[in-house]
Design a protein around this nucleic acid. Structure first.
Lengths: 368, 368
DNA sequence: TTGAAAGCGCTAACAA
DNA sequence: TTGTTAGCGCTTTCAA
């Protein structure tokens, strides 16, 4: 009996001992220095003698010591965590953004706490959680709720930036493409290629990306004295985009050029036009999207699109947030960037205006 | 001069005051109770009188108080954070996984610290960071490095599960589809449809998803006494998948059925076959992928695929990790699930074996 | 350069 | 049910 107990104790003891992660005090003890010395060894730029440093490092290795970032954050009042809330992950553009943002943030020494939001639901709890973790900053990527959430963050004095969501009141810092201009350039392109009957498959009403792009289309058509565009809502999802496409084609005098509020919908429409309807995009019909998702460039798709400069935008987003964090401020600027109309095969090409870029892409610029 | 100073002070003071986030002590003071009472009010299931609770809640609201989760984690020795390391976000399957995993974890009360890994590089720093944050668990999704990283986590006594990566030694808990069987079923399907010359566009050598699927193909062909499959490596990216496709077609007696190691490559190949080569998939050529990405189901693609049961897998992943966390253990089981061959138009259909599911999908099952 | 001491904001025994 | 007390693991003055 006693033996068994002892065996059990022997089995458990080392387990428990190794389960417990080493603390700086234990490392200090083993190294024969103070806890301050351990702290300094693991703090970049702190002054420690090489001798002490070595002793600490040896002890740390022996004990498999890792500084507890939670404790560090608590005392430094900095978590080095940025919360990212993102929607529409089914739109391939957002994984691309996420990937680059992750790389940018980790380069800046920050970790990313990710919240994927679905439509309208469950948003306040998310915000609550996020603020409880004392994240140093928040990035809100394209959601109908972004603006309201951003305002809550500001109230809580947490630096926040929005991506792809404009704040007309210009109160919340953000990074967006000039969507009005984007809509305009796309329309100019189609007009230059000889199109007169333009259709628009809209995204979700109220989201600035979709609304502004549409406004650009409308203004441009009107400026040219052409009839207004036809529209149908695709709500940024494929099934609805496809029925919107049907709706547009079912009207009388259907459009011979269809602009989709993003590439995600455009790719689906393009595909159905080709495979189901037997149309030859670029000849029988022109289809254009916005964003510039990678897949659109691959042969077999060749989607003409107005590409957002994703690296530039992510850089502006990260840098803007860092500025706010460093200055302990919730005010920052609104960054508006220009994109490029990437000429590919899904829309009829105008006679002129194309420029070949260094990266091999063919870009079209309106005259003016 | 004095006036200016006072103005400045007046402007700054409230800022600084409101910048400082309220602590439980301040709330306790205002509510006229102890800090424990505040703590209990914000702890689910703790015993507080309604009276106290109300006083605390009122004070908390007045001070915009939010419990500091970092401090809470420090003392409770639980961060309620799970680290997720994921690769291949360009493959649409992984955003789908991420989305569901995020939902699952948040339902379980956990937050997700996301690390996006790119190929081989920069991996140890990631792991180091992740462990410093005292995450309660780690999920490693499909990376060549998953296994090595997982072993490091185990060493550090952190519960870890792998997704889509098999550990032959069965030491690391994981969730995978039965890829050997998947490869076999796909091959049986093509054979049943009359194909004899099978090509395989592989993923990255050494990753079990690609290797096991290929082994299933090889075994099945051999079992039927058919010639071995031809192969070319697509390495899970589109450009290489397309040249692999060219390579396969350039050989003599080229395959009339091409299996791709995942849908991501299959969609690109399918598209090129249709648009560039003018082939009619399902008639002139059969193309099949693995995973069951959503986009493959949309009209115009109609990709025949071996679908992984993503919800089931995410559930197993989350539940498995929770079990390990709750039992403070790093040992767990390997879960292997079966998928379904989803019949669509990109591959020739066998005469029989189809079953119509409740969700509208048409599934094929081998006779056995 | 180093160590002692104080404390970040919170929870968890324990006693009342 | 409530308050008191003692830390969780760390950094940071301060004095030596």
């Amino acid at each position: 009996m006693v033996e068994r107990r002892m065996n059990k104790a022997e089995r458990d003891a080392p387990d428990r001992a190794s389960m417990r992660r080493a603390t700086s005090a234990e490392v200090a003890h083993l190294a024969g220095v103070s806890r301050s010395a351990v702290s300094r060894t693991f703090t970049l730029g702190a002054s420690v003698s090489p001798e002490t440093r070595r002793k600490v490092l040896d002890a740390a290795t022996a004990l498999r010591y890792r500084p507890n970032q939670l404790a560090r954050s608590l005392i430094m009042n900095r978590s080095l965590i940025v919360a990212v809330a993102i929607s529409y992950l089914d739109n391939h553009y957002y994984p691309q953004v996420l990937e680059r943002l992750s790389a940018w943030l980790s380069g800046a020494g920050y970790r990313m706490l990710l919240f994927i939001t679905h439509g309208e639901q469950h948003f306040d709890p998310v915000l609550e959680e996020l603020l409880r973790y004392r994240v140093d900053g928040v990035i809100l990527a394209s959601s109908a709720q972004s603006l309201r959430l951003a305002q809550e963050c500001v109230k809580a004095h947490v630096p926040v930036m929005m991506f792809n969501t404009a704040d007309r009141a210009a109160a919340i810092p953000s990074v967006i493409a000039d969507n009005l201009k984007a809509g305009s350039v796309v329309t100019e392109y189609l007009i230059a290629a000889g199109h007169r009957r333009i259709g628009y498959i809209a995204g979700i009403a109220g989201e600035s990306t979709s609304d502004d792009r549409e406004a650009g289309i409308a203004q441009t058509l009107s400026r040219h004295g052409l009839p207004p565009h036809r529209r149908a809502a695709g709500n940024f999802n494929i099934p609805e985009a496809l029925s919107a496409f049907e709706t547009l084609r079912a009207g009388d005098d259907p459009p011979d050029a269809v602009i989709c509020a993003n590439d995600h919908m455009a790719l689906a429409v393009l595909q159905v036009a080709r495979v189901r309807l037997g149309l030859r995009p670029g000849q029988d019909i022109s289809i254009i999207g916005f964003d510039g998702v990678e897949i659109g460039a691959s042969p077999g798709f060749d989607l003409t699109t107005y590409a957002q400069p994703i690296d530039l935008m992510v850089e502006a987003l990260g840098a803007g947030l860092m500025r706010m964090i460093d200055s302990r401020s919730t005010i920052g600027e609104q960054v508006v960037v220009d994109g490029d109309l990437v000429v590919r095969a899904s829309a009829r090409r105008p006679a002129s205006g194309m420029v070949l870029m260094d990266d091999g892409r063919e870009i079209w610029r309106p005259k003016t």
